[in-house]
């Protein structure tokens, strides 16, 4: 797989960034999620409007490595807010960072589309409460735009 050099400066310092959004469970939960804790920030709950971000700390960055997919994302820590807008329906939700993730490097180059509107690379994961504000949970993965509120 071809991997490009990360952008410099980080693209999200300049403007909104487009990428893929998925959802994950955290906090007290049922099923395979029952072993999931409250995330890197210690506050994550599936029912709250929260998200995971790939660069919350050095340790987080060393796991997620979006730079290996050619994406540089700036450091943003617990509680920082993003607006996530679906590129499919246009709905948006403002959430705050509660965990480290997604593991961008393991899905490098992946692309999601709605018709001819596409976005590449997993840049953000929402809690079920947040994701279901902009898309059905059964879609699993969507292209989105990430900006600051």
């Amino acid at each position: 797989m071809t991997r490009s050099q990360p952008t410099d400066p980080p693209i999200d310092l300049l403007a909104a960034v487009q990428g893929e959004v998925s959802w994950f469970c955290c906090g007290t939960a049922w099923g395979p999620c029952s072993s999931t804790g409250k995330g890197a920030c210690g506050t994550c709950n599936s029912g709250s409007l929260q998200h995971a971000w790939p660069n919350t700390s050095d340790a987080c960055w060393s796991i997620t490595r979006p730079d290996s997919c050619g994406v540089s994302l700036s450091r943003r820590t617990c509680g920082f807010q993003h607006r996530i807008t679906s590129l499919c329906g246009g709905g948006s939700v403002v959430t705050s960072i509660a965990d480290c993730g997604p593991q961008t490097d393991l899905f490098c180059g992946e692309r999601s589309c709605c018709g001819s509107t596409c976005a590449s690379n997993r840049l953000i994961d929402l809690t079920p409460a947040a994701y279901s504000r902009i898309a059905s949970l059964s879609t699993g993965l969507r292209p989105c735009e990430i900006s600051t509120p």
Partner: peptide
């Protein structure tokens, strides 16, 4: 479906529990 989920929902503070979920 996408329009339905994109429909306006009451403001909830980021990070807070969503009462409609």
């Amino acid at each position: 479906p996408e329009a339905a989920f994109g429909a306006a929902a009451p403001d909830v503070a980021p990070g807070a529990p969503d009462p409609d979920f």
